[in-house]
Design a binder for these strands. Structure first.
Length: 232
DNA sequence: ACATTAACGATGA
DNA sequence: TCATCGTTAATGT
């Protein structure tokens, strides 16, 4: 993507971010000035664990994941983050070193807001603070339901839950029915091997819930997927 | 039982 | 050419 196209994509992305609508004109001007965009190829580390939390990130295009690495090199994926979402406010708020890696799992464009701008907005804008609260609350809800799903459900339903949440409007406001993610990453996100992820996805396909493409999954029946995700 | 890892070939971009 | 997918056989819990 050329720089000009990327700047245009960044403007569109900001205009489409719901928290921007609550800002004053002056606040918006500063945001537009301070937020920058950068492209990352598939597999690239956007932010490494252990580095200072100096930025809030927005996924303009593509897909990121949040993961930790254990000492023996194994990794656990906590979240898949599709285009339209913002992430990283937790570490910025705590002022800690980043606890997780943020990695591109597709060719991606990522927007960066400096920590100082983020904290300024949080102090200046009540609507922004409310938006952040609802975002944190939506994440909490995700993880509570995740524990429930893993305690009570078989692997196919675990995969269904993780897949369904990629379309959660509270977590990821951009409305889509298709997501660009490999079965390998679906497995990591769901805590199962690629073999099992593949079997679960084919089961969902055979039930007419999704369609599978090369590196993509399209939801055909969202309500059926959500029902399976919650134990049906 | 049921999941994982490693591996293979096939195929899409 | 490389990523991704579908499948299988051996192995682990």
């Amino acid at each position: 993507m050329t720089n000009v196209l990327m700047e245009q994509a960044l403007r569109d992305f900001l205009d489409g971010s719901s928290w921007v609508r609550g800002l004053t004109t002056a606040q918006m001007d500063r945001v537009r000035h301070d937020v920058t965009a950068r492209a990352y190829p598939n597999g690239a580390t956007v932010l490494a664990a252990g580095t200072p939390s100096n930025q809030w990130l927005g996924v303009v295009d593509g897909m990121l994941k949040v993961e930790t690495m254990s000492v023996d090199g194994k990794s656990a994926t906590f979240a898949g983050v599709p285009a339209g979402a913002w992430l990283g406010e937790g570490a910025v708020l705590k002022g800690e070193l980043r606890p997780y890696n943020v990695v591109a799992i597709r060719d991606s464009v990522v927007a960066t807001m400096p920590r100082t701008t983020f904290l300024w907005l949080l102090a200046e804008s009540h609507p922004f603070a409310l938006w952040i609260i609802q975002q944190l609350n939506a994440r909490l809800g995700y993880y509570v339901a995740l524990v429930q799903s893993f305690r009570l459900n078989d692997t196919t339903k675990q995969v269904a839950y993780c897949l369904a949440e990629l379309f959660n409007q509270d977590l990821y406001p951009t409305v889509r029915r298709q997501v660009s993610i490999s079965q390998e990453e679906i497995g990591r996100l769901s805590g199962v091997s690629r073999t099992i992820a593949n079997r679960a996805l084919r089961e969902l396909h055979d039930r007419g819930v999704i369609r599978m493409g090369y590196g993509t999954i399209e939801v055909v029946d969202m309500s059926a997927l959500n029902q399976l995700a919650h134990g049906a």
